[in-house]
Amino acid sequence: MEACRITARDLACRRGDRVLFAGLSLDLAGGEACQVVAPNGMGKSSLIRIIAGLLRPFAGSVERHGMAGLLDERPALDEHQPLGAALDFWHRLDPQSAPLDQLGLADLTDVPVRYLSTGQRKRAALARLIGQQAPIWLLDEPLNGLDTRGVAMVEDLVAGHVAAGGLALIASHQPFALPDLRRLDLATYTR
């Protein structure tokens, strides 16, 4: 996997009139994983979107080397399409096809996305993320809606990704079992 790195300096995030966090610095290299923890509404998702380059920080700068893949609550799959066809669209843009067997989706390829459950959607979004082959994984609440087997599967996937030299930034309020997982508590950066 290509070398990747995220360097964030003195980040601050403002939503509306509120500064959610300020003075946040972060340095992550390939092979490292970090979990962002904070209560709801403290800016976990905003931090992920700032690192992804989708949201401008109120202050500070982000340097990102390597392509980033984002997993959030929106699977970005066509609701009326069967799951197989919806994932095929991303396969045309991305280097690899999604490992459906591994994610327990092999039997669902004919089912329209709108009939999938929350957990199944999350698995489908993971399939899209894996197909993208991005060295940087930005995961916003990756465990939401997943059963215990799904949680273990995501933890295995992230462990495999990090072991292969990838980088993972995980925003989650749930415990995430991963060896050498760094923790970043947003509450220490609030004013």
Partner: peptide, 9 residues
């Protein structure tokens, strides 16, 4: 649905 964010990435 998040398509534009995924395309941007």
């Amino acid at each position: 649905a998040g398509f534009f964010d995924q395309w941007a990435l």
